[in-house]
Design a protein around this nucleic acid. Structure first.
Lengths: 99, 99
DNA sequence: GTCGTTATTCGATATTCATCGAACTATGAG
DNA sequence: CTCATAGTTCGATGAATATCGAATAACGAC
């Protein structure tokens, strides 16, 4: 019982974190771009679509990564971004397709 | 084209507002209580489950109402709260059932 | 009208968040 | 090793958010 309650609280902490991560226009745009591209993209590629400084872009990438909404893969100097479908499917089933 | 982009931006503004509204532990609890009850409940009834002052409770009710996640019905001195399913279904299909 | 109940609004405060430019790190090329 | 490219982290700052208690409002009962 306590375990169930704690379990739920823990999941809710994750939910809150994920919603916070999605509650921003720039991050929503990042997600849409990745979703529509249907492939991984470089940070620079995605960042070019947002009209903000690169430090801010990096800040948003990190926010998404920290809550498990995106993945990062490094190759030489460039990093590739992709959506982590499992997180969306678990916490927000159907959301990506509604974008 | 501009119209489509603006349309999308407008929807995104709503999405951001809704995610902000959901990005809070207390409001998530309010939603779960209402969802599990499967009926409308009085503000007092819901508020009793959260361990915070009534002004804060009211603040959270308003936050949910403003973005269209809940409905309010007044009857004499008491107000009844309920989930607005249409908003969840449109912006977060499948979310309520994942709770 | 006054009283009790239920809920909202107000003013203050502490915390968190988004943004920037500058400094820094990491990696490969020459 | 030096240079160039791609991203990240730091420090500062202004804006937004969550919280409280006190004051206010809405309503029915009496």
């Amino acid at each position: 019982m306590d375990i169930e309650i704690n379990q739920q609280n823990q999941e809710d902490q994750q939910r809150v974190a994920i919603f916070k991560a999605l509650a921003d226009d720039n991050r929503l745009r990042i997600i849409r771009v990745l979703y529509q591209a249907q492939r991984e993209m470089t940070c620079g590629e995605v960042g070019a679509q947002l009209n903000i400084s690169k430090s801010t872009v990096s800040y948003h990438f990190k926010a998404l990564r920290l809550v498990g909404l995106t993945n990062t893969r490094r190759e030489a100097q460039t990093k590739y971004l992709s959506l982590q479908r499992a997180t969306f499917d678990h916490f927000l089933p159907g959301f990506l397709d509604s974008l």
